[in-house]
């Protein structure tokens, strides 16, 4: 991924002004954001898939990203931990900071960033290793060598992911023997074992049945106590159930961003209203 640098120096966030006459994008200036996104453009080949995105992601809150397919919501969260780097011939312009630190800073390695900003994917993707090894792997590559500590942290994260009781007797079995919902919770456990600050969920329930979905949602509400959470979802009910803030994306633009309640009950943009009432998408 190439960065089109508009501002070679460290961005001065305080002065970044957001032009939003309709106040559709409501940024709470009283809060110090965990992640701050300013004037973010993203190009894939020659197509601009994200246009001038401005938003804040607040600490220990759940931010939902909604919008019809192809609106750029997945692209957006993949930039937040720079998984977008792997997309060939893509370009990014604008600023994103994690606790006031520019994530595109060459000194800030993507590897380090991803340790702090974890990700759970659309389809559960456990490694074809044992349940325990799935979690231990992340710890080992992040420098945890003591096997006792690895064990402790694995158990702790399994408990936190509400999976421990179901798998405690078969930690040595293959992760692939788990059900889809269990696999997804294992992926969450794997992610929180390395103690990230932010967890990105990319449509985590897209391939799950309703019961597993409910469990994951419950879990997200629980995890909010410890982590800042961003969740992409095409399920508006889910956004309403789990999130504190909601961002509505349409064709690469951020149409509306506000507290979830406000977005769903009293949207300030006609298009948001049309989408959440099911008129398109």
């Amino acid at each position: 991924m190439l960065r089109l640098d508009t501002n070679k120096n460290k961005p001065d966030f305080s002065s970044t002004e957001i032009r939003d006459p309709l106040n559709r994008v409501h940024i709470d200036v009283s809060q110090q954001p965990k992640i701050r996104v300013r004037n973010l453009d993203f190009y894939y080949d020659e197509n601009q898939t994200l246009k001038k995105i401005n938003m804040d992601i607040y600490e220990k809150k759940v931010t939902a990203i909604i919008g019809p397919s192809g609106c750029g919501k997945s692209t957006f969260i993949r930039i937040l931990n720079r998984m977008s780097d792997f997309a060939a011939s893509s370009k990014v312009r604008g600023e994103i900071s994690l606790e006031r630190r520019d994530i595109f800073d060459p000194e800030f390695s993507p590897v380090e960033l991803r340790k702090r900003v974890g990700m759970v994917f659309q389809k559960p993707n456990p490694f074809p290793k044992s349940i325990f090894e799935n979690i231990a792997y992340g710890l080992r590559i992040n420098g945890v060598k003591n096997s006792h500590e690895i064990e402790q942290r694995a158990v702790k994260s399994l408990k936190r992911a509400a999976l421990y009781e179901e798998v405690k007797d078969r930690l040595k079995e293959s992760a692939l023997s788990l059900s889809g919902g269990q696999q997804q919770r294992l992926c969450i456990a794997r992610c929180i074992a390395i103690e990230p600050e932010v967890i990105l969920f990319d449509e985590p329930c897209a391939s799950l049945d309703p019961i597993s979905t409910a469990k994951i949602e419950e879990l997200i509400l629980e995890l909010k106590k410890y982590y800042t959470i961003v969740i992409v979802t095409h399920n508006m009910q889910q956004a309403l159930r789990v999130s504190d803030y909601t961002a509505f994306f349409l064709m690469g633009e951020l149409i509306e961003f506000n507290e979830t309640k406000k977005v769903f009950e009293n949207p300030s943009d006609k298009r948001t209203e049309d989408y959440i009432t099911g008129r398109f998408g």
């Binding site: 792997f86 994917f121 993707n125 490694f127 290793k129 792997y137 590559i141």
Partner: peptide, 26 residues
């Protein structure tokens, strides 16, 4: 599957760590 690479990189693994621990064993 690409998802294996993504899963590993998202945990903060480097390219080689991913190749050595995830790709090659499989």
């Amino acid at each position: 599957p690409q998802s294996m690479r993504e899963a590993s990189m998202a945990l903060g693994a480097t390219k080689w760590e991913t190749v050595w621990n995830i790709i090659l064993p499989q």
